[in-house]
């Protein structure tokens, strides 16, 4: 299963990101499943994200789950993640969007990105992702990439 966390450049330090990843993993294991989870951080360069007409200060976290996941457990997970995220970052809860998306729709979202790219574009993106994720894992201890190629 995958967790994609989109944050703004310079918004959080490495220690905060590691703490956030730890809480996401812990809450996911407690409320969803003990299955292996891959957490990927997408860091948006300054000036490239907007929320409500303003430069964005928002964090967007999408988590994958199995189809038919119970709603009451979803709400419990999202509440726990929201509580822990705002405690670590000091963000207002309005600046945090969390979702637990069932696998078919989650993959549809990921496929949407692949489908808008040419074959060469997909290869370029895959290479960028691979090298970025490896470099960040070795250098920072977590998987991250920037969306610009």
């Amino acid at each position: 299963m995958k967790i994609l966390a989109t944050v703004q450049e310079g918004q959080f330090g490495n220690d905060q990101i590691k703490a956030l990843e730890a809480t996401l993993r812990r809450n996911y294991a407690e409320h969803v499943s003990a299955t292996r989870v891959t957490v990927i951080w997408c860091v948006i360069p300054k000036g490239q994200a907007f929320t409500n007409y303003q430069r964005s200060q928002s964090s967007l976290v999408s988590m994958e789950c199995v189809v038919g996941f119970p709603q009451d457990r979803r709400v419990t997970l999202l509440q726990a993640c929201e509580r822990d995220w705002t405690a670590i970052t000091g963000q207002n809860s309005d600046q945090v969007m969390l979702s637990l998306i069932e696998a078919d729709v989650f993959n549809n979202v990921l496929d949407g990105n692949r489908l808008r790219l040419s074959k060469a574009g997909n290869l370029k993106l895959q290479w960028h992702m691979l090298t970025s994720l490896l470099r960040s894992k070795l250098g920072k201890g977590y998987l991250s990439f920037r969306p610009n190629l």
């Binding site: 808008r116 370029k124 993106l125």
Partner: peptide
């Protein structure tokens, strides 16, 4: 409401069918 709306830009991507901009809205 506008508070809900997030827009993110990224560049350097070769798009399908010679497109210059590809928009995905979740």
């Amino acid at each position: 409401p506008a508070e809900f709306v997030n827009v993110v830009f990224m560049h350097g991507h070769d798009l399908r069918d010679g497109n210059l901009i590809g928009v995905i809205g979740n």
